[in-house]
């Protein structure tokens, strides 16, 4: 009962907020609805017993990806009305492509099914949820059997980081940076000087 209630609650909010993402006029609102959709999908995943994916959805998608979207939307000055101008012109072609995709999806859905040994011989069996939680199962695979790929993925991310710095970082002149060493080494006479000011004259 509670399960069904929770499911319908999360599902309804997900669908409504997903619609609002594309329907709302203000792009900032779209991103906020996207975050709402993500949170509710995370709830759906928890109901399915996939708590790891739920947490990833919140941490990675809400925490990083959508915040990045928000930055882009707020930082870049995009005229959204200008972007929408071609809407009617492309409606026909876009609609046709949409119908084709929908038909393909329907065909796939009708013909769905796995045959032969693919069902009986899965690459990695999933342990029962009672024995081991999702997160634990993933971790015990990731750091043993797939440790090589895991480390390789780390190297790839390192390359991405080096690449981003190499291609964009520049040393600009005139940027003031804190140098703790310099601050500590500063002597008193460099910091201030005593000026005798005669009354009524000022510093000039």
């Amino acid at each position: 009962m509670i399960y069904a209630l929770a499911f319908y609650l999360f599902a309804t909010i997900t669908v409504i907020s997903a619609i609002m993402v594309i329907a709302s006029r203000n792009p900032v609102h779209s991103v906020l609805f996207l975050i709402l959709a993500f949170f509710n999908s995370a709830g759906l995943f928890v109901l399915l017993g996939a708590e790891f994916i739920a947490m990833i959805l919140v941490i990675v998608y809400v925490g990083a990806v959508t915040v990045l979207f928000l930055f882009v939307v707020m930082m870049l000055d995009i005229d959204y009305n200008e972007l929408r101008k071609g809407f009617q012109k492309y409606l026909l072609v876009g609609g046709l492509i949409g119908i084709v995709l929908l038909a393909e999806l329907a065909l796939v859905g009708m013909g769905w099914g796995l045959t032969g040994h693919v069902i009986t011989d899965p690459a990695t069996a999933i342990p029962a949820l009672a024995q081991m939680s999702n997160t634990q199962a993933l971790g015990s695979l990731l750091y043993t059997r797939y440790v090589f790929l895991f480390q390789m993925a780390g190297m790839i991310l390192l390359v991405a980081m080096i690449g981003a710095i190499v291609l964009t970082h520049r040393k600009r002149p005139g940027v003031k940076k804190q140098n703790v060493n310099k601050q500590v080494m500063r002597r008193r006479h460099e910091a201030y000087e005593i000026v005798k000011v005669k009354p009524g004259q000022g510093l000039g």
Partner: peptide, 23 residues
Amino acid sequence: LMTLYMGLELQSLSLYVLAAFRR
């Protein structure tokens, strides 16, 4: 296939950066 992809991506990503090295 996964090792293949990992190796290929590590190589390719480095090469993309190297190609644009004189930014």
